[in-house]
């Protein structure tokens, strides 16, 4: 049900873009107004969400420790997995954010039995996750060439590296293949693995379809349709310099592409995709395990009723005296 609903939602979105530009002819709406609105929604939404998180207190310092603590000088501590100061916390976070270290942990020590080789599915999850997120980053950086004139030489070098294999014409970019493949894998995994199918929600399928729609329309423009890059670049530069013009050369696929991107931008703050920001604020990862060295302050540390020693002694004084235990008050 979740799959069909999400797929349908993305198809409807594509149809809206097609109908809006081809039938109704609202090219400025889809080329200018909606992208602007989406960026505004994205920026405000993300700031709102992050501020909301930031407003929640961190009453306790509760890092998950994944290695030896720093104690006695002759015991080797595990600085990355059990950081004791800010520097090592930053290192831990760096590995977590850029290399998904916790996910990678899954892959260790798999005992394989018998002649059949079984791969742990989580290893694939790490690989596909890395492939997708890194490709996405490179693709995003590559898109800068549409917004900057002249295109800086490092961007050209990057694109050349991306097309390292020199296959096809136009040359096929590795990241294009990887991003579509990894998204497909991440989707299939949710459908094929029953455990994941059980726990997946429409909110898990929808972003996958949306991203697939975006990448496929992008790939389509690059490799299959004749796309007028000059007019797209003109629009892109116009958008960032607040003087956008939608030329009549801008094609339908581009409108689909940019509409889906707009929807994605606006959707991010409402969804689990906020994990890109949340990962930096997770208290089990971004705090140092120096609990016994530096006191952590709880901003709402409550006053609680306690059972004092005086009350305790009052109740048990006679028994304590009979047992020969020292008491504070004789009566």
């Amino acid at each position: 049900m979740g799959v069909m609903f999400s797929l349908l939602a993305v198809v409807v979105l594509i149809l809206i873009a097609v109908a809006g530009t081809e039938l109704a002819g609202w090219r400025d709406l889809f080329g200018i107004v909606i992208p602007y609105a989406a960026v505004v929604a994205f920026v405000i939404g993300v700031i709102y969400r992050v501020l909301k998180w930031a407003r929640s207190a961190v009453p306790f310092r509760i890092p998950t420790t994944c290695g030896q603590q720093k104690t006695l000088p002759w015991i080797k501590s595990s600085k990355l997995d059990n950081p004791h100061n800010l520097f090592w916390v930053l290192c831990r976070m760096f590995l977590e954010v850029f290399f998904f270290r916790s996910l990678f942990r899954n892959t260790r020590s798999v005992v394989v039995e018998g002649p059949r080789i079984l791969y742990s599915p989580t290893k694939w999850l790490w690989a596909a996750g890395m492939a997708f997120h890194w490709s996405l980053l490179i693709v995003l950086i590559r898109h800068c060439k549409y917004f900057i004139e002249p295109v800086p030489s490092w961007l050209v070098t990057m694109q050349n590296l991306d097309g390292f294999f020199q296959i096809g014409l136009p040359i096929i970019l590795t990241t294009d293949v990887v991003i579509v493949a990894s998204l497909t894998f991440l989707f299939l995994r949710r459908v094929v693995d029953q455990k994941l199918r059980y726990l997946s929600l429409p909110a898990d399928y929808f972003p996958l379809f949306l991203l697939l729609g975006i990448t496929v329309s992008g790939v389509f423009m690059r490799y299959f349709t004749k796309t007028d890059l000059v007019s797209i670049k003109e629009l892109a530069i116009g958008l960032v310099s607040f003087s956008p013009v939608v030329s009549s050369e801008v094609g339908l696929v581009f409108f689909v592409h940019i509409f889906l991107v707009s929807v994605l931008l606006a959707y991010i703050p409402l969804s689990k995709l906020m994990h890109f920001a949340g990962v930096f604020m997770s208290p089990t990862r971004n705090l140092a395990n120096n609990n016994r060295v530096r006191r952590h302050i709880n901003p709402w540390n409550p006053k609680v009723k306690v059972h004092t020693y005086e009350e305790y002694e009052d109740e048990y004084r006679d028994l304590m005296k009979a047992a020969g235990l020292p008491v504070d008050k004789e009566e």
Binding site: S109, V110, V111, V112, E113, L118, S120, P121, D193, Q194, K195, L196, R197, Y198, L199
Partner: peptide
């Protein structure tokens, strides 16, 4: 249950 049986079948690590 369905979701458990795939796990029982596919996870190779005896521990």
């Amino acid at each position: 249950p369905l979701d458990t049986s795939t796990y029982l079948k596919n996870q190779a690590d005896q521990f």
